[in-house]
Amino acid sequence: MSGYFEYVGVTPPALGEPFSFQVASEHLNGGGSIHGGMSMTLAELVCRRAVSASLEGEVGACISLNCDFISGARKGETIACTAEITRQTNALVFVSAKLTSGERTVMTANGLYAVEATDE
């Protein structure tokens, strides 16, 4: 998919397939839980996947993401990543994501994606 996701060990399945991720040693913070940057990485990716599926070929660029850190996840835990579109206009897609480990919520996130790239 890309240098970053390959480097951090994320191999998402085809769009529309369930997406989960197993926490390994290199994803942790100093307290032994998943690093916030890694969980935000997963939240953005699952949002992007939902946006891509919804746009059917057009590209969505993340312009804003708000992430709440609800609980931690230790090495070896499997985190299920889900997202759903809240609203879609010609220019913007609003998307909401949730990361869970079993019954426990790890992160909730809300993202805003621009349908066209924001580059000038």
Binding site: S2, G3, Y4, V8, H35, G36, G37, T41, L42, C67
Partner: peptide, 22 residues
């Protein structure tokens, strides 16, 4: 560097958020 970017050389949002968190 390439570890931080997508195939087109753009910094990945996840990496940028990680740097911001740090």
């Amino acid at each position: 560097d390439e570890r931080h970017c997508d195939g087109q050389g753009n910094g990945e949002p996840g990496l940028l958020m990680t740097f911001a968190d740090a």
